[in-house]
């Protein structure tokens, strides 16, 4: 390769790797802030902020969803298969909300250690299949929560 071109190539490689390293350091430094949510284990271990809003993510425990007869209030437990936190929410749930589904909820802990949610988002998994296949894979389809 022509020496001038070689010098340009080396210059570009040095520049891109330098920026990559700098970005890497910045990302490591901000890692905590880039975490979109905490797990129930984090919350039970006291890692989540205590008097400010934060997000918690986990699976809705089968059979834990209780709806109020008179209002849109709903209680359910979410788990990361280690610890479980009870969530109280008043509002409209997304279409994908159902038992066994991964969700992310934003809110605050109250003094009893319950999570008072302002927002509930459903996190869908990366699997796509028709209902028949899902039924044979799981035997039992996850129960759909009727609004």
């Amino acid at each position: 390769m022509h020496p001038l071109r070689k010098r340009r190539l080396i210059l570009i490689l040095v520049m891109v790797s330098g920026i990559a390293v700098a970005t890497g350091f910045a990302l490591v430094a901000f890692n905590q802030n880039l975490m979109f949510f905490f797990t129930p284990s984090d919350v039970k271990a006291g890692k989540a902020p205590s008097n400010r809003l934060f997000r918690m993510g986990g699976m809705v425990v089968d059979g834990s969803v209780k709806k109020s007869d008179t209002s849109t209030e709903v209680w359910f437990d979410i788990t990361d298969n280690e610890k479980t936190v009870t969530v109280k929410y008043n509002g409209i749930l997304p279409d994908l909300f159902r038992e066994g589904q991964g969700i992310i909820t934003k809110g605050k802990l109250n003094e009893k250690g319950e999570f008072i949610a302002e927002e509930v988002l459903a996190k869908h998994d990366e699997n796509y299949m028709p209902p028949e296949v899902a039924a044979t894979m799981k035997k039992k389809k996850p129960a759909y929560i009727k609004e």
Binding site: F36, F37, G57, I104, L121, E126, Y128, M129, P130
Partner: peptide
């Protein structure tokens, strides 16, 4: 790398295929 609301990759992951062939 981070916990996100967006789910993980479907097609480019190496273990079992997680999308039906017709899809």
């Amino acid at each position: 790398w981070w916990s996100t609301l967006h789910q993980g990759p479907t097609v480019t992951k190496f273990d079992k295929p997680s999308i039906d062939t017709r899809m």
